[in-house]
Design a protein around this nucleic acid. Sequence first.
RNA 1: UCCCCGGUAGCUCAGCCGGCAGAGCAGGUGGCUGUUAACCACCGUGUCGCAGGUUCGAGUCCUGCCCGGGGAGCCA
Length: 433
Amino acid sequence: METPWVYVEDVAKHEGSEVTLKGWLYARRSSGKLHFLQIRDGTGTLQAVLFKGDVPEPLFAAADKLPQEASVIVRGTVRKDARSAFGYELSVKDLAVVQAAEGFPIGPKEHGVGFLMEHRHLWLRSARQHAILRIRHSIVKALRDYFDARGFTLLDAPILTPAACEGTSTLFSVPYFGETAYLTQSGQLYGEAGAMAFGKVYVFGPTFRAEKSKTRRHLTEFWMIEPEVAYLDLAGDMDLAEDMLVEVVGSVLAKHRAEIAGALERPVEPLERVKKPFPRITYSEAVARICAAGHPMEWGADIGGDEETVLANQFDRPVVVHRFPASMKAFYFKKDPEDPRLALGIDVLAPEGYGEIVGGGQREEDLAKLEAAIDAQGLPREAFGWYLDLRRWGSVPHAGFGLGVERTVAWICGLHHVRETIPFARTIERLSP
RNA sequence: UCCCCGGUAGCUCAGCCGGCAGAGCAGGUGGCUGUUAACCACCGUGUCGCAGGUUCGAGUCCUGCCCGGGGAGCCA
């Protein structure tokens, strides 16, 4: 085969000329003297048509027996054709089978979630999963572009850590040369060290929680992007989160509108409404709204999943909740100078019941107050030695937040469960594939 | 950790008041020059999650266990 190798996404540029495609057989239909082969190559899917008179008889007969997901190299002429769902077709002159695997487990009909997750390594080949993971890629790229364009430095935090960052969550422990190490639950404390060195940083990496959460919003291993900025206050933190989300959603819509509306069947209108400004309400206002909506809850209690949805449904875009009871938040949050019962935290709740996608706030910069908060929560001060150093030399007000990548992907893609937003999900019941 | 639902053919499921294990799809054979989850004809398919128990007889009823799914709490 001497014709140029092209990818499906580029075939329009080669209309009328002969090309070679290298890919896999996605589906096959036949109508006697015509075989229709749907060829996918990772960039798209194209219908290849074999007409009995155009190719040698043994090849024509063999093409009718090709199993799903056989890897193939096809040569033919690109033709515009409205009868094809893809707009273009390939009139095949030659076809070579690289490998003809038998009995691909995932057929065109429906499968259960358990079966599909068990075959996740093969499920990735389907059109819907393909759309989701490409959008995930675009979301991650948009996030990085956002921070890179604003002078942030990427600061990779360690994954193996000596102790709990916040002293709250259950962590995975691993043997570490006679000691116990823990898989990180957040890179934030390291991000704070970075902010004091570089001014503006973001930590981006996997994080781990060993809690036995079994819900559509939880994974045991998930990715967070965590900006941290020196001299930033709470209002600036809210501005940053808001601006970032508007930019990311806009960027994804610009690139993936067709996939969102098509393969994912997700309405785009709610995404188009993600514009500045986002409503900002205090925790106290949130509690009042939730109670008024017929879901009684006490001030000081956590806003649960149902309550989050009730609240988020009152707005047409993400809503920022700020100033939480200090008892609900980790030790490092700065107290509200106007009401010490409150911590200067923020949560951003995604619309449509997707819940909390951003959590963060302003940090306590005063050494004595921070030590007192550590003591008050019964945490060992010596575990935070290096962190306290940050308050000893040139401490400044600073703030940041963490964005959960998987929840953000689930929201933008309109998915029911976060397990489809990551190539290989880790949940309480699943460690493989 | 707690609550709810489920496990029957390769897949998705039905199986009533306990009485021969059954559909669709996938797979195989043949047909069809425009298929879009193609269609038409024919063909095969079982440790009914596991272990006990009740019964003349258990996929079905009872007990325990295993596995999966959904939710709560906690969190992103």
